[in-house]
Lab assay of single mutants.
Amino acid sequence: DAEELIELVERALKEGREIILLGVRITSEEAGKWFIEWIRRFL
């Protein structure tokens, strides 16, 4: 579910982890915020 995915992304970014989803590397909080917004819009 989308909320679970958002929580995972937020937690990983807070822990300083690198996330790779759909071939996109997300390493900064700014990118994470963009990704979370995208999830909310399309899922």
Rank of each mutant, 00 (worst) to 15 (best):
E4H: 14
R17L: 14
G16C: 14
L13C: 15
L43W: 10
W34R: 14
R11F: 01
A31R: 07
E30Q: 10
D1E: 09
I20H: 03
G23I: 13
W38S: 01
R11I: 08
G23T: 09
A2R: 07
R25M: 12
E15F: 06
L22V: 06
R40F: 14
E37C: 14
E29G: 10
E18N: 11
E37T: 03
G32H: 07
E3T: 12
E4Y: 15
G32A: 13
A12Q: 03
R25I: 12
G32S: 05
T27I: 14
I20F: 03
E18Q: 10
S28I: 09
E37K: 06
R40D: 09
E3M: 09
I19V: 06
W38F: 11
E15V: 08
E10H: 10
D1N: 14
E37D: 09
R17N: 04
W38A: 03
E7D: 12
G16L: 15
R11V: 04
L8E: 05
V24K: 01
I19C: 15
G23M: 13
I19K: 01
L22Y: 01
L21N: 04
D1G: 13
K33N: 08
I6Y: 05
E3D: 11
E15P: 04
G23Y: 11
L13P: 01
E37I: 10
S28W: 14
L13V: 08
I26E: 05
I20Q: 01
D1A: 13
G32Y: 12
T27S: 09
R11D: 04
E10Y: 07
L22S: 04
S28T: 09
K33E: 08
I36Y: 07
E7N: 13
E10S: 09
D1Q: 14
I19P: 00
A31I: 15
G32V: 13
R11G: 03
I26R: 05
I39P: 00
I26N: 02
E7G: 13
K33P: 02
E3K: 10
G32C: 15
E29C: 07
R17Y: 13
G23A: 10
T27P: 04
R41C: 14
R17F: 13
I39M: 08
E18G: 09
L22F: 06
S28G: 12
K33L: 09
L22H: 04
L13K: 04
I20A: 00
I20S: 01
I19A: 03
I36L: 07
I26Y: 03
A31Y: 09
E15N: 09
K14R: 13
T27K: 08
K33H: 06
L43I: 10
E15K: 06
A12E: 06
G16N: 09
G16F: 15
R17K: 10
R11P: 04
I6R: 05
R25H: 11
V24D: 01
G32R: 11
S28N: 11
I26D: 02
E7I: 12
E29F: 11
F42W: 14
R40E: 07
E29P: 14
W34F: 05
G16E: 03
R41N: 11
R25A: 12
I39C: 01
V9Q: 00
E37A: 11
E3S: 11
L21E: 05
W38N: 00
G32L: 15
E37R: 05
A2S: 07
G32Q: 06
I36N: 02
E7Q: 11
A2D: 07
E3P: 08
F42T: 04
F42K: 02
E29V: 12
S28L: 12
E15S: 11
L13W: 04
L13R: 02
A12Y: 06
I39K: 00
E30G: 10
R25K: 09
E18R: 09
T27F: 14
I20G: 00
F35D: 01
A2T: 09
I36P: 04
V9P: 01
I39T: 00
A12W: 11
F35W: 07
I39R: 00
E10C: 15
I6M: 04
L43R: 01
D1F: 15
R17T: 07
E7C: 14
I6D: 04
D1W: 15
G23F: 12
L21F: 08
R17P: 06
T27N: 13
T27M: 14
G16R: 06
I6S: 03
D1R: 15
F42Q: 04
R11H: 07
G16I: 15
R41M: 13
L43H: 03
G23L: 13
R40T: 11
I19Q: 01
I26H: 03
D1K: 14
W38K: 00
E30W: 14
E4P: 11
L8P: 00
I6F: 07
T27D: 12
R25P: 03
I6C: 07
L13M: 09
W34H: 11
L8M: 10
I20D: 01
A2Q: 09
E18Y: 10
I19T: 03
E10R: 13
E30K: 10
I26V: 05
A2V: 14
F35I: 13
L5I: 05
I6Q: 03
G16M: 15
K14V: 07
R17A: 09
A2M: 13
L5R: 00
V9Y: 00
R11T: 09
I39W: 02
A31M: 14
V9H: 01
V9M: 08
E18A: 09
R41K: 12
W34A: 14
A31T: 11
V24W: 06
L21R: 04
I6N: 03
L22R: 05
W38M: 07
R11Q: 07
A2Y: 15
L8Y: 07
L13T: 04
A31K: 07
E30C: 15
L5M: 09
T27E: 05
R40N: 08
L43F: 12
S28R: 06
E15Y: 10
E4F: 15
L43K: 02
E15I: 09
G32W: 15
G23H: 09
I6P: 03
E18T: 12
L5C: 05
I39D: 00
A12F: 06
E4N: 11
E3Q: 13
W34L: 12
V24A: 03
E4C: 15
V9D: 02
I20Y: 02
R41D: 09
L43T: 03
W38I: 08
E30Y: 11
F42G: 02
E3Y: 13
V24T: 05
R41T: 08
F35Y: 05
L5D: 02
E18L: 12
R17C: 15
L13I: 13
T27Q: 06
G16D: 02
E3W: 15
W38R: 00
F42N: 02
D1T: 13
L21M: 06
I36F: 07
K33A: 10
E30L: 14
K14E: 07
G16S: 08
L8W: 10
W38H: 02
A2H: 09
R25F: 12
F42Y: 10
W34Q: 09
G23P: 07
I26P: 03
L8F: 12
E10W: 13
I26M: 06
E10Q: 10
I6E: 04
V24M: 06
A31H: 09
W34S: 06
L5G: 01
S28E: 05
V9C: 11
G23K: 08
S28Q: 03
R40P: 04
R17S: 05
A2F: 15
A12K: 02
L5T: 03
L8N: 02
E3I: 12
E29D: 10
E4T: 14
V9A: 02
E30M: 12
E30S: 11
L22N: 02
E4W: 15
I20W: 04
W34M: 10
E7P: 02
V9T: 02
G23N: 04
I39N: 00
K14P: 05
E3V: 11
L5P: 00
A31S: 08
V9L: 09
E10I: 15
G16W: 14
I39E: 01
E7T: 12
R25G: 08
A12I: 13
F42M: 12
E7L: 12
I19L: 10
L5A: 01
E29T: 13
I19R: 00
E3A: 12
L43D: 01
R11E: 04
R11A: 07
I19E: 00
G23E: 08
W38Y: 05
E3L: 14
I6W: 15
V9G: 00
L13H: 03
E37H: 05
E15Q: 04
I26L: 05
K14G: 07
G23R: 04
L5Y: 07
A12P: 00
I39H: 00
S28H: 04
A31W: 14
V9F: 04
G16A: 14
F42R: 03
L13Y: 02
F42A: 03
V24R: 01
R40M: 12
V24F: 08
L22P: 01
G23W: 13
L21S: 06
I39L: 14
E18K: 08
I19S: 00
R41P: 02
S28K: 04
F42H: 06
V24Y: 04
I20P: 00
I6G: 02
I20R: 01
K14A: 10
S28A: 10
E7R: 15
E29R: 10
G16V: 14
E7Y: 09
I26Q: 04
